[in-house]
Write a protein that binds this DNA or RNA. Sequence first.
DNA 1: GATATATCGGCAAATTCTTGCCTACCAACA
DNA 2: TGTTGGTAGGCAAGAATTTGCCGATATATC
Lengths: 210, 210
Amino acid sequence: MTTEADHLQVLLVDDDLDVLAANARFLRVNEISVVLAESVSTALQRLTENEIDVIVTDLRMPEANGLAFAEQARASRPLIPIVFFSGFAQVPDVVAAMKLGAVEFLEKPVDPDELLRVVRSVRRTHYGTLANQRQVFDGGGESFSLKMRVLAYEKYVIESSLLQHNGHVADVLNALQINRRTLNDKMSKLGIKRDTLIEQRAGSNNEQES
Amino acid sequence: MTTEADHLQVLLVDDDLDVLAANARFLRVNEISVVLAESVSTALQRLTENEIDVIVTDLRMPEANGLAFAEQARASRPLIPIVFFSGFAQVPDVVAAMKLGAVEFLEKPVDPDELLRVVRSVRRTHYGTLANQRQVFDGGGESFSLKMRVLAYEKYVIESSLLQHNGHVADVLNALQINRRTLNDKMSKLGIKRDTLIEQRAGSNNEQES
DNA sequence: GATATATCGGCAAATTCTTGCCTACCAACA
DNA sequence: TGTTGGTAGGCAAGAATTTGCCGATATATC
């Protein structure tokens, strides 16, 4: 289960093949695997074939626009993070995209470093080894009490934040705007062990960048 | 208190007094009560004095911009729906606003009918769709405090349960294993209005879509 | 009208959570 | 060895939440 825990797979959708190839190359150089799609229909197909973690899509495409694609994508992957990019974006487009739950909206031409930053931050925020807990508070759990679901969610947020900040507690304090003493208490109550979390992450991540 | 159950109160913030007055007049004609503020500090003041349901604010203002205002406003009203408007909005502004949990982002000059529609829809859909709230507690919100994210999640769970049980509070109590008094308090604090929630759901069944 | 059912709010006691202060531990390093 | 930076836990006061009890209101039903 943890064999490919940190292996991030991006679905990159763009009808402009040159841009598509360039962005893909850049991401791959930075150790992110990329699945390509040059149309909405292909993208939907790829989405079912691969274990996609993030969708990065152009907003304007000939066949159907990115918003429509995002809606269809969400049908099968309700919580998948989606990053849009577009040139000449109108405000209503951006608003619509964000309402659809877009994680970011980048302007074309996309700055590769920015793209990389966003994709990586998505990884840290949304995924991790946390998929299990997620199920408790996400959708399904009709049978759990409110308190339990809230606790599960709280745990998820804290663990995410810890991972995101490499176990650096001071940063978590700042990001979550919480008192240190309170965070310590919560972690202890929720059974979050900073060291274990980081070890795991380091272990599955024999390659490191920081 | 309950005499004005469906009575919607809007806090309208704009440093341009002419626009402010014009919009206020239009909203009032349409049976929406309006509280005015021409600066951020005034707005924060008004927010504490009145029972505001929605904030409609300009993004660009001399004293402090709308985003900063929104952040401060959320300190006292964590989940209050905020509508931004602005001329010359840049994509990053819009993205930032939406990430902050904005309900809508309108372009200046604001079409009065559009404004009315948005304000009313806020009432109708009661602080946005569930999917929208999801965005707050799900991935997007790196910038939200733990407390805020937990509240958003709690709200989402409660609203879901209410809808699922047709507004039958007793069933929700049972499903969520929570004390009635506690649920009532939470609903009031989170701005969940059972009646509105159910009305809207009933309305959307036979009525048009939007 | 009565009566039953379901919801909501005020109040206060009991409980839990939050936070500041102080101490302690550990690792890096001068 | 001593200092610095980052983290964790004990403790107690202060703040907030939870909950039981009471009554109020609204809508059906008899």
